[in-house]
Design a protein around this nucleic acid. Structure first.
Lengths: 226, 226
DNA sequence: CTCACCCCATGCGCATCCTGGTGGTCGAAG
DNA sequence: CTTCGACCACCAGGATGCGCATGGGGTGAG
C-alpha cells in the first residue's frame, strides 16, 4: 500500500513519513506541487496527502489537474486555515477529504484508512488500454475478453505500463516498481517484456507493447491508427 | 459485534462505552458528525448509535448521507427533544429507530439488540458464487444443492473468499480475517485451503478455488467461460 | 474419556525467474 | 547507401523459493 505525501515543510513531511511508515504504508515524498503532480500521475498510489500551501504549484491546482486528467486516486488535503471557504474550495476541486492543521495524528490515520477503504470499494480496479484489460484486484488479464495467464512478475510489469498508458516508461522505472527488492539489470525487464509480448501481443497478432529505443517501453491502444 | 457510538457529550459517550462494552459489544466512539460519518462508512459496524445534536455535521445529515451511499447499517438515533416532528424527520432520513433523552439504559440495550437481530434477519446471509452457496448464519455450505460439511476454520476461510469473489485475497488478509487471535504462518492458510479444495472442488470435479501465485487465493465461478 | 479439529513441521514438485550468450535491429555518421 | 556500434530480442539451462500435501500430536469440547 503506497502513499504519496506532498508537503514542503520538512519537519511535517518527515513526521508523516516515519509515522505512516510505522503504520505499514510505503511512503513517498514530494516537496512541491509540480513534483507531487508528476509523481501522482503514475497512478500507483492508494492515496495522496496534499498540502494546499505549496511552492510552485499550489494544492488546489494539483488536485484539479489530476481530476481533469481522469485520475481518481483519493486525495486528503491538509489546510492551515480552517475557514469554510477553504474546505469548500478544496472539496470542489475534487479532494475527498480535508484536515485542518494542526491535526491529531490519530485522526489523520483514521481518515486516511477510511478513504483507502472506501476507494477500494467504489473504484473499479480495472485498468484498460484498448481491448487489453487488467483487473488489479483479481490479478486477471484479458485481451478482447479472452483471458491471458500471466506470471506475477509479468503482471507487475504490465500493470506499471498500463497505469501510464501512452507514455514511455523507462526500464529504471519498471525495475523500481515491479521488482520489490531493488534489482539493477535492465535485461530483467527486457526478458519479462519479451514474455509479455508473446502472451499479450503475438498470440493476438497485435503490437501494443512498443519499444522506445534508448528509453524503455510504452503500452498503447493499437487497434486503430496509421 | 462492533458498535459505533456518535456522541459529543463526553459523559454520555463514556457511559455508553462502558455499558455496551460490558454487554459484550466492541464499542468505537466518534465525537462529531464528520468523524462519525467516516467511521460508519467502513461498514464494519453492526449498528450505529447516533446523536442528532452534533457539532460540525448534525445527525440528520450523517444519517441521510450514509443512506444515500447505500450503507444499510442499522442506525439508532438519540434525540434530546421528543417532539413528533423530530422523530419523523429522523426516521425519514433513514434511521431505524429513535430514543428520546433521557432514556433508560435498559431500554436502549433492548432496542439495540432488537435492531441488530432484525438487521441480521433481513440481510440475506447467503453468499453465492456460482453453484457454491454459504449460509453464513446457519454455517451451511452447499455445492450445487448438496451439502458439504466444513469445519469452523474452513468455513471462515471460505467465507472471506466468497465475500470477495473473483478477487485475489492475500494470505495475510485471510489470516487476519479468519484467525481471531493473530496468527502469522501462511502455511495455516495453505493447509486449510488444501482441505477445502478436497471437499468443495475435488469431490465435484471442480476448480473454483484458484491459486494466485505470489499473492494468495481467489474464489470464482468456474462453470462457464475461459 | 473420546473425538474432532487444527497447529506445526517436513519434503517434494514445479512454476517462475535469473543468467549468460547469440543473433538481430536500429540509427547516425561517413 | 553503407558501415559500425550500441541497443535490444530471445533462448535455454539451472537455481530458487513458493505452494501443496501429509501426518503426528496437542488441545478443547462434549
Amino acid at each position: 500500500m503506497r502513499i504519496l505525501v506532498v508537503e514542503d515543510e520538512v519537519d511535517l513531511a518527515h513526521t508523516l513519513h516515519t509515522g505512516l511508515t510505522a503504520e505499514g504504508y510505503s511512503v513517498d515524498l514530494a516537496h512541491d506541487g509540480r513534483q507531487g503532480l508528476w509523481m501522482a500521475r503514475t497512478g500507483e498510489y492508494a492515496l495522496v496527502v496534499l498540502d494546499l500551501m505549496l511552492p510552485g504549484l499550489n494544492g488546489y491546482k494539483v488536485c484539479a489537474q489530476l481530476r481533469r486528467e481522469g485520475n481518481a486516486t483519493p486525495i486528503l488535503v491538509l489546510t492551515a486555515k480552517d475557514g469554510e471557504w477553504d474546505q469548500a474550495e478544496a472539496l470542489d476541486t475534487g479532494a475527498d477529504d480535508y484536515l485542518a492543521k494542526p491535526f491529531s495524528y490519530m485522526v489523520l490515520v483514521a481518515r486516511l484508512r477510511a478513504l483507502v477503504r472506501r476507494a477500494a470499494a467504489v473504484a473499479p480496479p480495472v485498468l484498460a488500454v484498448g481491448d487489453l484489460s487488467l483487473d488489479v484486484a483479481g490479478r486477471v488479464c484479458r485481451r478482447a475478453g479472452t483471458r491471458v495467464e500471466l506470471t506475477p512478475r509479468e503482471f507487475a510489469v504490465l500493470e506499471v505500463l498500463a497505469r501510464r498508458a501512452g507514455q514511455a516508461v523507462s526500464k529504471a522505472d519498471l525495475l523500481y516498481h515491479a521488482w520489490p527488492d531493488e534489482a539493477l539489470d535492465p535485461n530483467l525487464v527486457e526478458a519479462r517484456v519479451s514474455a509479455l509480448r508473446k502472451k499479450v501481443d503475438a498470440a493476438f497478432r497485435r503490437q501494443s507493447l512498443q519499444t522506445v529505443r534508448g528509453t524503455g517501453y510504452r503500452l498503447v491502444d493499437d487497434r486503430e491508427r496509421d
